[in-house]
């Protein structure tokens, strides 16, 4: 965290469903938009009341310094996101950010692969945008339970990302998990760098696959979080190489796969 943290009552500029249970929330937050890096997050209050008490962390899904807006992409899964889903355009929301450590933006080589599980696709748009703009070939493997749980596929394709997808029910792309898709893809093609975001079980499997392929891998982690600033020490995951814990809010959310035990 080297940037300045800004907190705001940010005005909601757009708030739409992009899939049956997934919404994109756009906020006027120039201080955050000016500084945010791909992979960083914001910590937002879903309601001004004290129940639910804690802020909710969201990957930053769009960064537009020119218009001073940022977006988050989220799935409605619990009380916090249900309250969030009812916020209207023009309302204000309390948002803190940009927080945490983002993605490596200058990986060695030219060919990178992004691996997304469900709503784990959220942090990839700003990353892909930057990588494409700096001359990388970007491929994205996206997995979901079914077609209705995808978001962003077209948006990423429009950036020039080569898209492949897998669904567990076969309703779109290959049938199976994104980890199968990754294994099959790695049999046919080589990459210089991989980035993954999704449920921990998926990240653990991807870490193994990329480990075998000796493909450098960064993971965007998710943990239950309180402060988002590094003071509560609540959002930990075990270190791989030594005893002790990483703090997802400051050491992450993006970490190198070999740093973390999943």
């Amino acid at each position: 965290m080297v940037n300045t943290i800004a907190i705001s009552q940010a005005r909601v500029t757009e708030h739409n469903f992009v899939a049956p249970n997934i919404k994109r929330l756009a906020l006027q937050a120039p201080g955050i938009a000016r500084q945010a890096q791909p992979g960083q997050f914001v910590n937002m209050r879903c309601s001004p009341t004290l129940d639910p008490l804690l802020r909710r962390p969201f990957s930053i899904n769009r960064i537009d310094p020119t218009s001073g807006t940022i977006s988050v992409l989220y799935k409605v899964v619990g009380r916090g996101t249900e309250l969030l889903a009812n916020i209207h355009r023009g309302d204000s929301i309390d948002v803190l950010g940009p927080l945490g450590t983002g993605f490596e933006l200058k990986p060695q080589g030219r060919k990178v692969v992004l691996i997304a599980g469900g709503i784990g696709v959220a942090p990839f748009h700003p990353l892909a945008e930057q990588l494409v703009n700096t001359g990388y070939d970007v491929t994205c493997l996206a997995g979901a339970r079914c077609d209705e749980e995808f978001a962003e596929l077209n948006d990423l394709a429009e950036l020039g990302v080569e898209m492949y997808c897998a669904t567990e029910d076969g309703s779109r792309g290959e049938q199976g998990r994104v980890t199968n898709l990754l294994e099959n893809t790695l049999h046919k093609r080589n990459f210089d760098m991989a980035y993954a975001c999704g449920p921990n079980a998926m990240l653990a499997a991807i870490k193994q696959i990329c480990g075998r392929a000796q493909l450098p891998l960064q993971l965007s982690l998710e943990e239950i979080m309180a402060c988002g600033l590094g003071v509560c020490l609540g959002c930990t995951c075990e270190k791989e190489k030594e005893n002790g814990f990483l703090h997802v809010c400051t050491d992450g959310p993006v970490v190198w796969a070999e740093e973390v035990k999943l």
Partner: peptide
């Protein structure tokens, strides 16, 4: 309103 304009 941006994030620096919160008054107290």
């Amino acid at each position: 309103m941006d994030e620096h304009s919160t008054r107290y």
